[in-house]
Design a protein around this nucleic acid. Sequence first.
DNA 1: AGTCCACCTGCTCATCTGAGCAGAAGGAGC
DNA 2: GCTCCTTCTGCTCAGATGAGCAGGTGGACT
Lengths: 314, 314
Amino acid sequence: MDETDELLSIRAAELYYEENKTQDEIGQALRLTRWKVGRLLAQAKQRGFIRIEILHPRARRLPIERRLREERGLADAIVVSSAGVAGPEELQARTAQAAADYLTALRPVPRTLGVSWGRTLYEISQHLRNGWATGVNVVQINGGVSLNRRPGTAAATAVGIAQKGGGQATLLPSPAILERLETKQAIESDRVVAGVIELARSADAYLFSAGAADESSVHVESGYLSVSDVELLVAKGAVGDVVGRYLDSDGNIVDPALDARTVGLTLDELREAPLAIAVIAGQAKHPVADAVVRSGLCTVLVTDEATALHLLDG
Amino acid sequence: MDETDELLSIRAAELYYEENKTQDEIGQALRLTRWKVGRLLAQAKQRGFIRIEILHPRARRLPIERRLREERGLADAIVVSSAGVAGPEELQARTAQAAADYLTALRPVPRTLGVSWGRTLYEISQHLRNGWATGVNVVQINGGVSLNRRPGTAAATAVGIAQKGGGQATLLPSPAILERLETKQAIESDRVVAGVIELARSADAYLFSAGAADESSVHVESGYLSVSDVELLVAKGAVGDVVGRYLDSDGNIVDPALDARTVGLTLDELREAPLAIAVIAGQAKHPVADAVVRSGLCTVLVTDEATALHLLDG
DNA sequence: AGTCCACCTGCTCATCTGAGCAGAAGGAGC
DNA sequence: GCTCCTTCTGCTCAGATGAGCAGGTGGACT
């Protein structure tokens, strides 16, 4: 395509997309046949001169979703558009909304849904509508009750999802991380706790997010880890955590001793799940999102456009 | 349009614009008739959910051009797209290119073209192609030869435009602004200078830019004015200059005494021209662009999208 | 110069799409 | 409960568009 044709294709595109002229009219204006105009427009599209964006908080990026499914082996992918996004909070909100939509549309409806907790999960619970399902029971898959600064967030998440879904919530009454291995083993052998974990193992589907390995981690906020603990983990290669377990970029546990003191489903148990929905959004979580997808921790990913493109780049 | 329809229209738009499905296929996917899909897409467009951009340095914004013609009474307007622009230099380059394109396509071809000088005009001369016209003579319409730091820029501009257009350049051998009124009157009564100005008055068309009233002004750079001179002009209401003459936001001369010492066509002479092409780009020139258009200094405006929108806002 | 080949052009035809219309549905007011 | 009015729905039909094809054009190579 020479320079003249390139310019013509731009002129044609202006008349077609901005002035709503027909290809025939454009042909008359530019002294071309309407077939030539059609070809110029096709070339303009194909060469990427034409960008069509859907500007809406609920807009998704289907081509990127397809690439994630095909190139990253996911069973499903939901990618929300970043077009016209105001800030990181809105990105987070859009992604949580999309996750709520996905859950609502999910078929078959899971009888039991295993959930983690955290800012993202809480926001998903807020975006779910009353009656999003009928009779979905919810079970927590990792510990964390009550140490949180905003007490009850973890519980409110699970209970909220369950209530709006017309089911019961089963909480895991345990800290996320114990200080001593013996305490962790003791609490796991507690009849109630063991029962909850057993229920969690039998869930039909899991819904969880991932945390970045930095000082903003919920584990730091909740007091389970200190900033220097996290720095140590990062030094060992940690990119973030899933259900409280810190992993490196290959999805391996970074600190087996710490992991052994962490209550809840293990990463390998998650990997065996037939339906594991990860909801991860934001620049800060790009590395951990990568690790989650690469190591097969989820079968379904709900994320934002920038994160999705990051995953596809590598 | 309720929330459900809004969401459906977004889903439909995704399938239509990103997946290239037909409205009929979308109808099947979303369990709607194809007419409903068509209406949803029309509403999505109409409500502004669909943004179509033409990403190309030569892309123009025809709807904005139309508004400028209709709402600002211009005979013609050329607005280059700001989409995907890298920086102010590229905006300037795009606008200069558009001005060169406009000149090249101009019919009837002017026998004599009056030009000012400056960074913008120089860039236009660079973008013109050899043989853009056959036999267009060029005449400078304001003084400024030789005091410029990059000597010859003013002359190179006029000569370049003329040579590439197969014609002769007539330079105005005079400073832009004289220190004393008497000197200005003396130089204007010089036979050669008077002849050039007479020729300039008889030009078929004028091509000029405008300068912002700040320290970056070519008059400061050229030594005609000091920074404090410009500050004084700004204090008196100056928003910029056209052919070396400083005007306020209403297009009135700010400093009549200074104006009387300025050599070349007057603003009122420009206003009477049947074809006066102003080329103005960049954030810094928004106020002076406004003054130029409001006070009828040009019949044709070549500018960038942001500047055009600024003109239409007010 | 002749031949071949790739590309381009203008066409036919099938499909897609938007305008306009008649009837149905859903509310508001009586 | 009934009527009227607005809005919505599914349709016809004509215009717009894209796929595919035959013929033509121009350049490269022999």
